[in-house]
Design a protein around this nucleic acid. Sequence first.
DNA 1: AGGATATTCAACCGAACGGTTGACAACTGT
DNA 2: ACAGTTGTCAACCGTTCGGTTGAATATCCT
Lengths: 123, 123
Amino acid sequence: MAADQLSRVFSALADPTRRDLVARLAVRDATVNELAAPYDVTLQAVSKHLKVLEDAGLVSRTRDAQRRPCHLEAEVLDLMTRWIERYRREAEERFTRLDAVLAEMRDENGDGQPKDDRTGAGR
Amino acid sequence: MAADQLSRVFSALADPTRRDLVARLAVRDATVNELAAPYDVTLQAVSKHLKVLEDAGLVSRTRDAQRRPCHLEAEVLDLMTRWIERYRREAEERFTRLDAVLAEMRDENGDGQPKDDRTGAGR
DNA sequence: AGGATATTCAACCGAACGGTTGACAACTGT
DNA sequence: ACAGTTGTCAACCGTTCGGTTGAATATCCT
């Protein structure tokens, strides 16, 4: 639990049950009991899952009598999206550049043959 | 390892070392030795990390003599982005709708008071 | 053929994970 | 005040995880 937030968020969403909880909380806030109902694990297990989501900053909870309604904090998802998109874009650009270089080589001389050609395999 | 791909990808990126590997592979392909150099864990540990990334579909490897150059498969990152954005958007829209409803109530009568008011705590 | 280089496989270890059961705590409503 | 509802805490269990060391495999180079 001493991990950085990004690790906690990725790790939290690595579990299908927790992803499902997030999906359902995206629609509406809900109590632990409501959330636990569809799964065939104990209430305690779901409570734990919610704690993981909460520690990751994905879920916040208020109090309403005995109930602890859970609310999805969507901003944290942005954190992930930013991380992912950064490297996806970087890799994509690099690839586009490679394509450009290869095209250029093809234009200049017939046997454009870089030693590590991945145009076939690498898509 | 029998988990669905989404779980495998999230789980793969939950580790800071593996995220760093991805970040570096976004810049250029690299061999296991090159990738392992900066970290103070054994080569075998890094090899395992790469296997996890490979099983998640994030990394592919070809052979170049003794070397096994690693290449980032950026498309898989899209899978995550799509999942995340779907629910982020859903939650955000819901929130915008709630704001609209509240604004409307404020306009019509002074005591707009839905039973589950979260405007204060929920941001 | 045989040494060097690059990488993986196998067995093991302690910590963390996801689950369980059982007891406890917080608050409600009559 | 007290029974009921809602949720968490604590201890335990088997599995997975990230790491290690040591041996094995694959390929190059001379």
